[in-house]
Design a binder for these strands. Sequence first.
DNA 1: ACCATTTGCCTAAGAGCTTTAGGCAAGTGC
DNA 2: GCACTTGCCTAAAGCTCTTAGGCAAATGGT
Lengths: 189, 189
Amino acid sequence: MARAGLTAERLTRAGADLADEVGFERVTVSELARRFDVKVASLYSHVKNSQDLKTRIALLALEELADRAADALAGRAGKDALAALADVYRDYARDHPGRYAAAQFRLAPEAAAASAGVRHAQMTRAVLRGYDLAEPDQTHAVRLLGSVFHGYVSLEMGGGFSHSAPDTQETWSRILDALDALLRNWPAP
Amino acid sequence: MARAGLTAERLTRAGADLADEVGFERVTVSELARRFDVKVASLYSHVKNSQDLKTRIALLALEELADRAADALAGRAGKDALAALADVYRDYARDHPGRYAAAQFRLAPEAAAASAGVRHAQMTRAVLRGYDLAEPDQTHAVRLLGSVFHGYVSLEMGGGFSHSAPDTQETWSRILDALDALLRNWPAP
DNA sequence: ACCATTTGCCTAAGAGCTTTAGGCAAGTGC
DNA sequence: GCACTTGCCTAAAGCTCTTAGGCAAATGGT
């Protein structure tokens, strides 16, 4: 019997593609086996279990997202950098909804600490260097930006803003304007 | 054989409690049947299927959340109202994590239109009456607030802010201060 | 109070996903 | 060329979901 050439990495990538097609929550070891034209049990030599597979997909998504963000931030500062970072999240979620959902997957603490999640926080801090914020306000601002980016993208993808004018692109720009204004004028306690 | 007195409503409430205990994604028709000491198939007379059950739980959560919000907003205006509404979301998510997750469940368009989701949007608009925003800025602001509230709560619950100073309560207050300042000083396009 | 009807929960059964155990054959290294 | 490792397989058990059909408990009209 010819071998299919399974690998944890190939499975992870295929799982991520599957997530983008059918949604992260419907990523299943069985479906993945079907796609590789292989029996289900065979996957268990490469991946511990379903949880492990999902964790790998999540880590992949976090990496990809961090790579895109690093690219987008190169050579930018101030509002330019803010908008670039924001767009990376929004565009990634549009291009890869399943991967984006995977990036939200609850990781075990050690996995989380070793993940690209750390880079995300660093990059948000890098954006804030264009604004004049001392600690602890900088941390507050990091958390605010994370909340807005994630919250907006997830509401928009979830259809929370649908069927209503004005269109979401317009809102997105105005929110970025507003955040820029806010960061330039962060209120004292 | 004694009857268990099953009802769509009782199942929904028990399902919501179950969600709070083990997480919304682990709410299962089987587990619910176990809790009522009844065979699984019996639930299918009261609830169409697993999807239907989850939808009902989601609608319940949206109602409860809207009721809490309406309560909290009564007699408040301006920043007071803003903070009260924000706290309702955060507190509800803390008290009822499973229900909160359920409230994020993707509803079918008709279900969504008939849900308490509409009230949520109205209440956010009510809060904005304390600030001087004309359309379309008001809609942009509604979306911003929704994004921040949802994004913050979901990152905080997901452990996104864990293990790091300053504590999340402090950040939350400062974010509300910042939003208040931003709304009082919304930038022109 | 009695019988007919409705309603509620049951048994049975099929189909899918997950996971473990053990086997045979295709590659790998001496 | 042979022993060994590795990769995919078959088999099987356990869990969830869902439908179909049956019996008994409630309900209500006479």
